[in-house]
Every structure is written in structure tokens, then in C-alpha cells.
Nucleic acid binder design. Sequence first.
DNA 1: ACCTGAACACCGTTCAAGT
DNA 2: ACCTGAACACCGTTCAAGT
Lengths: 250, 250
Amino acid sequence: MTSPRAAGTAPRSALTRARVLESAVTLADRDGLGALTMRSLARELGIEAMSLYHHVANKEDLLDGVVDVVAAEIQDAVGRLEALPDDAPESSWKPALRRQILAARTVLLRHPWASTVLESRKSFSLHVVRYYDSLIGLMRRGGFSYDLVHHAMHALGSRALGFSQELFEPDGATAGSAGDGSAEEGAADAATALLLQMADELPHMVEMLAEVGHQDTGSTLGWCDDQTEFEFGLDLILDGLERLAEREKP
Amino acid sequence: MTSPRAAGTAPRSALTRARVLESAVTLADRDGLGALTMRSLARELGIEAMSLYHHVANKEDLLDGVVDVVAAEIQDAVGRLEALPDDAPESSWKPALRRQILAARTVLLRHPWASTVLESRKSFSLHVVRYYDSLIGLMRRGGFSYDLVHHAMHALGSRALGFSQELFEPDGATAGSAGDGSAEEGAADAATALLLQMADELPHMVEMLAEVGHQDTGSTLGWCDDQTEFEFGLDLILDGLERLAEREKP
DNA sequence: ACCTGAACACCGTTCAAGT
DNA sequence: ACCTGAACACCGTTCAAGT
């Protein structure tokens, strides 16, 4: 009764690198990146922490693998988009690129922690590189020189993968860091209130809040629609690239 | 001989929040963000780790403060730029904005770890907000509606502060995450070599490397000039905004 | 071969105690 | 009031030992 395993059945508990990585993604989705520790992951898998090191070199390698899983999802999502017909006009690079990037974005929205991990990687996932290759391919179809393609990839930066570095994410914003650090408030409303108090010091900021913020949700900092803003920024860049590509033509 | 302190002299070792934060910045500049721990910072200051908690609520608060120090440097650098004359033409918003952002960038280049910390903050530094206010002010002088200003700030994202999220930073890149994780190589050349091996799978990527990479440093992935690429992306966005602002005019 | 338990060198932080 | 030492609950990881 040592190993209760039926003849043809694969061992239910056979730990593989793939199973470890999938479990890690599930755990991060559910409990956040901070909850993804070697010990908690082991608990999730019903094994001891040290057993993980048999399938993963160390935590860095675990995170590399986890990024690769997400990147594979991106490749998959992009692959499911309908292909451009062979006789598509040259100008179709733009909507096609846009669609691919927005498809990548839907995947990253499912894994909100992934962008942080992606940023922190020193190595790169082959799935990410393949995805980049497809973006580059689209631009080439649009007549871009490789020099322009290269600049374009840099200009897109993280937007190529579907996220942008928002530096004004006032979800749970406080202005504590400027005071003595003891103040601690969570609501965006509170942050807005604080900004409004400084109207004399931040005249333009406050006026912007008053004018733009009013429109829908009523004067709080939390009005921003991430998706809208992402697409605005993306289109700004795509429009600019289109213009540069036109200029390259003889 | 308990307290060898001269009469009018301020206690040389009087610990203040400001001194703690300055020390933290120095330490991060010298040894990197990973080396900034409560214990190492205390050692740097010649005190015990627990004494820090008298001037800083916890590590989060320390990082908030450290960001604020850097943001103050940015404000300072921007403040030293020559002001726009009152009769400057409306169009001068663009070079002025550009100059401010590039000035912010020089500060962040002095503190390479700062962007990571900036991204991770939930609270915001008042110095950052004041800096943003000056950017908004410039766009208003350029005739932007507040709606456009708002979109513009989102579109700029981290670029407003002088850095961009590069997702293809192949300084020490490896492709380890796609294999079994045991491969470990440091050089960009190695990464390039690996990509070249996959020429059939990554046709456009490899061709781009061959064509663009050749020009200066000779076919390695490390050819990218960060400053050039940052300015390319920034100008792409500024040009786009200029066009949208023109369109808003009656 | 795969998995384990104890142990090590770190973290941030609490707490009671010193001056 | 400011600072301290010991201790606690965590990390990632090494190592010798189990099967």
C-alpha cells in the first residue's frame, strides 16, 4: 500500500515544472504577488517548500517561468485573432498592431501582478520575443524601415505588451510622504480633498480636477478610465509612427 | 563625560527624519535598492536598527520619504531652468515641456533605483504633484483644454518624470526562462547569439538586429542609446499632442 | 530520482526595558 | 524624549538525510 496508483494512470501528484508554474500563477491571481512565496506555493501544492527546488532553480527562476506562462497566454490570445489577408492594404498594419496590443492587454488585465514581474525580469521570455517578432512583422508590412521599427519598439515600451506605467494611480492615494509620515488615509476622495486644500499651491492641478473630474463620477481623483487612457496614448503613438512611415516613403 | 557636546553646537549626531532619508538615498545610490534595509541603513548611520522607527513609521514610510527627496531634487532642477518670458509665443509650451521633462530625467539618471520605488508607491509625493502642476501649467499656456491636458498626462505616464518602461532591456539578458532554467549567461552578446540561432522562428527580429545593430557597436543587442530612444518617444507624444491642440482651436 | 526536516542567514517589526 | 537589545514571525536557501 505504498503507492496506490492504477496501472495506466499517470501519477496524479507528479510534480512538473509546468504544474509548479501554473500553481504559482493561480496563487498570484488569487492572493496577489506578495503572497507568492516558496513556502505558500508549496502549501498550495501539498508538498514541502524544499521540493520546489527540484523543478525550479530558485525564486528568480520561478518568476521567469511565471512570466513565460503569461507570455504564452498572450501569444495564444494574439494567435486567435483573424489573420490579415494576403492582399490587405499596406495601411492595415495599424489596426492590426492595435488589435494585437489590445489582445495582449486583456491577458495582462487578467493577471494584474504580471506587469510588475515583467518589469523586474532581467532575462526575457521566448514567448515575449515571439510576440515582439509578430509586432515587428506587422510594421514591416506597413513599409517601416528597420530603423523606424526599432525606434517604434522603444517608443511603445511597455505599451507593446498592453500596459503603461501610470504614475498617478490614485486608487488609495495619500499625501503622507510629504508630511511627518503619520497621516494614513486610504480613499481617493481624501486625496482629492487634500489636493483641493492646496489650491493656491497647485492651481492648474486643482482646476483640472474640478473641470475634468466633474463630468462623470463627481469630482474624485478616481474618475480615470484606464482603458480609455491606454488607447489614447497608444493611438497617439501609432498616429505618430504612421506619419513617420509616410515620410520615409520615396 | 557622558555627552561631549560644545555649548552652541547642534548635536552632531542628532538624528532627524531628513538625515535618515538623505542617508537612505546615499546608500541606495552606492549599493543599490536591494542593499537598503533597515539594518544596513542603521549601520550606515551608526545607530541601532530600531532607532530608525523613531523618525520613520516603517519601511514603506521610509521609501515614501526617499521618493520625496528625489522629487524635491527634480523640482529643484526644473526650478533652475530659465523661465519662459511672459510674451513667449503660445507654441513655446512644447520646447518648455520638453526641457522640464529632460531635466527631471537627469535627476532620475543620478538615482537609477528611484524609478522602481516611484512605481511602487501608493501615496504620492507633494513635490511630484507640484512638478506635475508645472507641466499642466505649460500645456494650458499652449491652449490645451483641461480634457486634453488630462489625457496628455496619462499618455506621458512615467515619461513625464523622465523615464520609460523599457521591456527589452537586454543589458544582462538571457533566454533562460524558456528552457529548463539551468542556463545562465550574462552578456548581451550571448543573448544575441541565442536569438540569431532562432532565426527561423524570429525572422523579423533577427533581421532587425542584423540591420540596425550593425551600425555602431557591432551586432550586439546592447546598441540602444537610452537617451536617444527616450527623446524619440517623448517627441512622438509631444508632436501628437501639438496636433491635437491645434485641432481644438476654433 | 525525488522528496524531506532541521538549520542558517537574512528580513521587518514588537515590546519591554533602559537613559 | 530618544535609543536599545532580545525576541518573533516571516523570508529564500543549504545540506545531510531519508525513500
